[in-house]
């Protein structure tokens, strides 16, 4: 395990002790590597299956035993899947004032990006602002308020879902992006506040004091001193919030109605209902939708794994 750096013992070890220990370690390493390779293969099998299916024709998809590498590769499945939704919806829509005709996955992607980027921004900003107050400022009821904040983690979103829906509907936000974006600017949820606070707490308080002596306001301490030191935590919150909003299904399902306003998750669901047996197209679309998340994860993992490790849990 972790104590595997072998320091020669000052006292005499029985003959062959170190040799047998080294041999044991070598055997362990071989077994572990074998297990990891088998495990990784199992984890990757569904993705390989998805990739393989996405290049087949409608009839090849159901062949048994399956052909893993279809020949020829049907690349055209990707553009077909991307644009096929336009076949059933010829709605006109616009993005940033530019008019478009026909709803395709392009529409859904732009909608999802709008929601995910703005929510991500809102969550990162507002959770760090609130966390700063909890971590660094003294005010009455600080303890009880923080406990209240943590307690909200136990509330399943389905409890607040119905009254919140009625509230947003009554102020005319039904079928708009507001219900999906505005809440992110209001603290970004207890978990993110907690994560940011833990990170702030790990930064020495002398930093703030030095800045204050130099004439920095509370906001200045937050913005110029603490935020730049919190990049791993901010990256963690940003990545998780972006991924959450990218994948979110229940909220868009409740609030969005017009086809041209729907997100990728809803678009894909529509696609399943309409072309449920066209697995080659479904896999192509699913794969395209998952790629941005995989890329963000691969780019950000160094930061946010550090973020989880240093801020969390213990």
């Amino acid at each position: 395990m972790s104590g595997s750096t072998t320091i020669p013992s000052p006292t005499a070890a029985p003959a062959g002790f170190w040799a047998s220990k080294r041999r044991n370690e070598k055997i362990t390493r071989i077994v572990v590597t074998a297990l990891l390779i088998v495990g990784s293969a199992i984890m990757m099998l569904p993705i390989a299956w998805m990739l393989s299916t996405s290049f087949k024709t409608r009839t090849d998809v159901f062949a048994m035993p399956p052909v893993w590498i279809p020949s020829p590769l049907h690349w055209e499945n990707y553009p077909t899947a991307w644009n096929v939704s336009g076949m059933y919806s010829t709605e006109d829509w616009s993005f940033l004032g530019i008019p478009f005709h026909g709803v395709t996955f392009t529409t859904y992607t732009l909608n999802t990006l709008t929601i995910a980027v703005l929510s991500c921004l809102g969550t990162t900003l507002s959770s760090s602002v609130v966390a700063f107050a909890f971590a660094r400022l003294r005010f009455p009821l600080r303890g009880p308020l923080f406990i209240l904040c943590l307690a909200t983690m136990m509330v399943p979103p389905q409890v607040t879902m119905i009254p919140t829906f009625i509230l947003f509907k009554s102020i005319g936000w039904y079928d708009t992006f507001y219900p999906l974006i505005v809440p992110a600017f209001l603290g970004g949820g207890a978990y993110n506040i907690f994560l940011m606070r833990q990170f702030f707490m790990s930064i020495p308080y002398e930093m703030d004091e030095a800045a204050k002596i130099d004439g920095c306001s509370n906001f200045g301490v937050y913005w110029r001193i603490l935020l730049p030191l919190c990049k791993p935590a901010l990256a963690t919150v940003a990545v998780f919030s972006f991924v959450y909003n990218w994948n979110d299904y229940l909220n868009p399902l409740i609030y969005l109605d017009t086809n041209s306003k729907k997100t990728l998750a809803l678009g894909l669901k529509n696609f399943v209902s309409l072309y449920g047996q066209d697995y080659h197209l479904l896999m192509a679309a699913s794969l395209l939708i998952s790629i941005p998340i995989a890329v963000i994860f691969l780019v950000g993992q160094r930061y946010f794994i550090q973020g989880i490790a240093t801020t969390g849990l213990k």
């Binding site: 990784s40 569904p46 991924v243 998750a265 809803l266 679309a285 939708i289 998952s290 998340i293 995989a294």
Partner: peptide, 19 residues
């Protein structure tokens, strides 16, 4: 090992598993 869990919560993965 981690990748599937990141992509994992969405509709895309549900569609994949349905298949």
């Amino acid at each position: 090992f981690y990748l599937p869990s990141v992509v994992g919560a969405g509709v895309a993965v549900a569609v994949l598993w349905k298949w």
